[in-house]
Design a protein around this nucleic acid. Structure first.
Length: 225
DNA sequence: TCCGAGATTCACT
DNA sequence: GTGAATCTCGGAG
């Protein structure tokens, strides 16, 4: 059995939500546990406009970085040839797909970069949503530093799954974190300011290339391509 | 135990 | 537009 991942104390969580809300300029909330249990495709749309935040408490100082989710892709269960859950059996890699929704799943892409996913659906059913792009809103200097870019290069901080992980300092160790109460948080505003959602085929895969499971905020400058 | 493929990014032509 | 960097997992033997 894998070691369970650290969670934040209720006090820290409260403080972090307050700081994040002030930074972004609107009140943010922790989604309910049920929020993450819907069908994968629906979740990929629903997560647009939510905020993905990384909490850093390394040198006693609390820092928050992250942004608004503007692009996602849905990866389904074993019926989806492009999904890591496509193999018939449960393996070390895809075991987490069958956990209750609301956990993180991070994997290595091409040996160099990482991709961050949100596990969705109830326990026993496989599904995850790849976060492809963020609109940076918090901790921009820290993210730029991690990316080796200038804070002015906003468009180049989180416009791709590998870039997001680099900006937020996420690697495979961050698999299995509870996104409602850990250093990796998904928070929702009361009302999302996503005007309209576009959809199209997923990017960078060789199988099921015509399935329209990629969703993004139409007109957002921050999407990956 | 070995081999091949892969949900990416960046530099170079 | 093309190719290289680089590492993990799954499947075959």
């Amino acid at each position: 059995m894998e070691k369970s991942k650290p969670i934040l104390s209720q006090n820290d969580l409260k403080l972090i939500i307050q700081i994040a809300s002030d930074t972004i300029g609107k009140q943010l909330y922790i989604p309910s546990t049920e929020y993450f249990l819907d069908k994968t495709e629906k979740m990929a749309r629903r997560l647009l406009g939510s905020y993905l935040l990384r909490i850093d408490r390394s040198d006693k100082k609390l820092s928050i970085c992250g942004g608004k989710i503007v692009e996602t892709e849905a990866y389904l269960d074993k019926t989806d040839p492009a999904s890591h859950a496509a193999t018939a059996k449960i393996t070390t890699r895809n075991r987490i797909f069958y956990e209750n929704g609301g956990l993180s799943y991070v994997f290595h892409a091409r040996g160099i970069y990482y991709c961050f996913n949100v596990i969705v659906r109830p326990k026993g059913l496989a599904g995850c949503v790849l976060i492809r792009a963020l609109e940076p809103v918090a901790g921009i200097e820290l993210m730029a530093q991690r990316r080796g870019k200038s804070p002015k290069q906003l468009l180049d901080l989180c416009s791709g799954p590998g870039k997001i992980c680099q900006s937020l300092g996420i690697d495979v160790r961050y698999t299995g974190y509870d996104l409602r109460q850990s250093e990796l948080l998904i928070l929702n505003p009361k009302r999302k300011d996503i005007k309209s959602i576009a959809s199209g085929p997923r990017i960078g895969i060789a199988k099921a290339t015509d399935w329209k499971l990629r969703f993004w905020e139409k007109d957002s400058k921050y999407v990956s391509r």
